[in-house]
């Protein structure tokens, strides 16, 4: 098991290094990165000064070396807009997004595992068809649209929830609801299929032949086996939640990492984007390692491979 986790972590680190390289060279591909870091109305002197200051006139490999050294020291440069270290800004915004994800993911898993398992219990039944339809709609709705329709209905028309901002728990209802939709819609279907496979397996038959109670068969024998594909897809959806967070935070004015990124893109604040992307990537890779560990926890065959 140790070697399995080690291998996967190693792969993640490789991916991270790859990403760092891509980020670095993308920024250099358009010519002088000063053009990216400085506002469009900057004069030639300002550009030259900036280039000299940051060593952008050095050979590419020298620049790459100092970039990497900077990354390892947590130095991603200064935000243009706020003249603050980019990493500080990112780390301030990070907890909000993390909280959003931490509320969303368990909800997604709970909803999809329960709904999917119940739908699989009577395939073709009324509950199954209803669940399929709703999950299909959930997976097909553009989340930014749901967000503004939600604001229109619950905040503007019904006045039940605030339109944007943070503070009370009411502020979290719409953002979390929007974030849950797509991943839950996808996962319900995955859970339903894998539960159906598990319920038609020979080991479930064998459990019936042993006299095991129906409830135990579903929740002890079939459920644990049907979780395996769900975990795999859930880890893909974890990256999807970051996608969703970008939109949700921007619509609801949440001061998270997604909003920070969008604002920085629009303000052309490259240092912040760089820092935000690398920190997010690190977080996603950490989630993947946790997922891998839970996978090995659920399936002994992986532990022994």
């Amino acid at each position: 098991m140790g070697s399995f986790i080690f291998k996967r972590s190693f792969q993640s680190i490789l991916s991270l290094i790859f990403l760092v390289i891509v980020v670095f060279f993308l920024a250099r591909m358009t010519g002088s990165p000063a053009m990216l870091y400085l506002p469009p109305e900057a004069t030639q002197e300002q550009l030259d000064a900036y280039n000299a200051l940051h060593g952008f006139d050095d050979p590419l490999m020298v620049q790459f070396g100092s970039f990497i050294a900077g990354v390892f020291q947590g130095n991603f440069g200064q935000s243009l807009q706020y003249s603050r270290p980019a990493l500080d800004m990112v780390l301030e915004a990070f907890p909000t997004t993390l909280a959003l994800a931490a509320v969303t993911m368990p909800l997604v898993l709970l909803i999809s595992i329960v709904t999917g398992a119940l739908a699989a219990y009577r395939p073709g039944g009324a509950f199954d068809r209803l669940a399929s339809l709703i999950s299909l709609i959930g997976a097909s709705m553009p989340n930014f649209w749901v967000a503004i329709v939600g604001v229109l209905v619950f905040a503007v028309t019904l006045n039940m929830l605030p339109t944007s901002g943070t503070g009370t728990w009411q502020h979290w209802v719409l953002p979390v609801a929007v974030l849950v939709l797509r991943p839950a819609g996808v996962l319900v279907q995955v859970m339903r299929t894998s539960m159906m496979t598990a319920l038609s397996s020979v080991y479930v038959k064998a459990a019936k032949a042993k006299g095991v109670k129906a409830r135990t068969i579903i929740f002890v024998h079939a459920l644990r086996n049907s979780l395996l594909p769900v975990i795999t897809v859930a880890s893909d959806q974890a990256a999807g939640i970051v996608n969703g967070a970008v939109i949700v935070e921007s619509v609801f004015g949440f001061p998270g990492i997604g909003k920070l990124m969008i604002d920085s893109v629009l303000m052309r604040d490259f240092a912040v984007i760089q820092a935000a992307i690398l920190v997010t990537a690190l977080a996603v890779f950490l989630i993947n390692i946790i997922v891998d560990i839970s996978y090995a926890f659920v399936d002994p065959r992986i532990r022994h491979s």
Binding site: S201, V202, Y203, K205, A206, A207, K208, A209, K210, G211, V212, H221, R224, N225, V298, D299, P300, R301
Partner: peptide, 21 residues
Amino acid sequence: RINGKSISMIFQDPLAALNPV
């Protein structure tokens, strides 16, 4: 109550009939 106690059964493919987890 009868299954497994008074009548029990074994299957063709024991790998499939044992729960892998």
